[in-house]
Amino acid sequence: MSKVLLVIGHPDLSQSKANAALVDAVRDLAHVTVHDLYATYPDFQIDADAERALLAEHDVIVFQHPVFWYNTTPLFKQWQDKVFTFGWAFTMDGSSSQLAGKKAIVAVTAGVPGDHYTPEGANQATLETLLSSWHATLRLCQFDIQPMVKVYGTAFGLSDEDLAIAAKQYNELLASFAA
């Protein structure tokens, strides 16, 4: 059984509808550890050693956050800067990092509908393109990158039924790592 670490970077999960629904859908899975960065570090003082130890204990790492200005949230970015350090998370000589081979999933929620995230849409780019720094970071850290999980329309247009479907699919995805 693979141990899954869900690193959640929502500034106020108690006020979230979509991110909270995703977390709630997987919280009771025995092999999933939910790690809320904003609850753990309200002062933004990240314990990088503790975070690295947590990453080392898990086989699958899920990075979940709402899209903030086509990026991750501020604390999540700071977390990346403090935790993904040279020599531990990545190397330059081709040797293996401490994260090499671990599966990584980026799971994001976007306020506007999916058609905004197309070359023809309002944003003129896909979420994968706009969040390409995630892919580059995960590749540098030698993660086994899995497909991105995307939930669109969380501020405009996502029905309760569609959110329930997304939460169920999220549960099924993370549950699949228990096999």
Rank of each mutant, 00 (worst) to 15 (best):
residue 75 L to I: 03
residue 154 T to Q: 07
residue 153 G to T: 11
residue 81 D to H: 00
residue 68 F to L: 07
residue 84 F to V: 04
residue 96 S to T: 07
residue 15 Q to A: 05
residue 175 A to L: 06
residue 134 W to T: 10
residue 126 T to V: 15
residue 32 V to D: 09
residue 132 S to Q: 04
residue 14 S to W: 03
residue 84 F to D: 08
residue 98 Q to Y: 02
residue 173 L to G: 15
residue 72 T to Y: 04
residue 88 W to H: 05
residue 63 F to T: 12
residue 50 A to T: 11
residue 32 V to S: 05
residue 65 H to L: 03
residue 36 D to G: 07
residue 90 F to W: 09
residue 106 V to A: 08
residue 44 F to E: 04
residue 27 R to K: 15
residue 72 T to V: 06
residue 61 I to K: 14
residue 101 G to Q: 06
residue 84 F to L: 07
residue 155 A to T: 09
residue 111 G to R: 01
residue 22 L to I: 10
residue 45 Q to G: 05
residue 95 S to I: 01
residue 52 R to A: 07
residue 7 V to L: 03
residue 148 M to E: 12
residue 148 M to K: 07
residue 103 K to I: 03
residue 151 V to S: 04
residue 2 S to C: 13
residue 136 A to T: 06
residue 63 F to R: 13
residue 130 L to M: 08
residue 19 N to K: 05
residue 19 N to A: 14
residue 37 L to I: 01
residue 129 T to D: 09
residue 8 I to M: 11
residue 163 L to D: 13
residue 13 L to P: 04
residue 152 Y to P: 12
residue 16 S to M: 05
residue 58 H to G: 15
residue 103 K to R: 10
residue 55 L to C: 11
residue 38 Y to W: 12
residue 114 G to A: 14
residue 55 L to E: 11
residue 71 N to S: 01
residue 116 H to E: 07
residue 57 E to K: 11
residue 82 K to P: 08
residue 20 A to D: 05
residue 163 L to E: 10
residue 175 A to P: 03
residue 34 V to D: 01
residue 137 T to V: 14
residue 86 F to S: 08
residue 108 V to T: 08
residue 48 A to C: 13
residue 33 T to Y: 10
residue 47 D to A: 02
residue 47 D to V: 00
residue 152 Y to A: 15
residue 113 P to S: 13
residue 69 W to A: 05
residue 53 A to L: 06
residue 171 N to C: 10
residue 167 A to I: 11
residue 81 D to W: 06
residue 169 Q to C: 06
residue 126 T to R: 13
residue 80 Q to K: 12
residue 12 D to S: 08
residue 72 T to S: 05
residue 94 G to P: 00
residue 48 A to W: 08
residue 29 L to R: 01
residue 5 L to R: 05
residue 152 Y to N: 10
residue 76 F to L: 05
residue 147 P to S: 04
residue 108 V to P: 14
residue 149 V to T: 06
residue 99 L to A: 01
residue 16 S to R: 08
residue 115 D to A: 07
residue 22 L to W: 13
residue 158 L to M: 11
residue 126 T to Y: 10
residue 112 V to D: 02
residue 18 A to V: 12
residue 129 T to W: 04
residue 109 T to N: 03
residue 97 S to N: 04
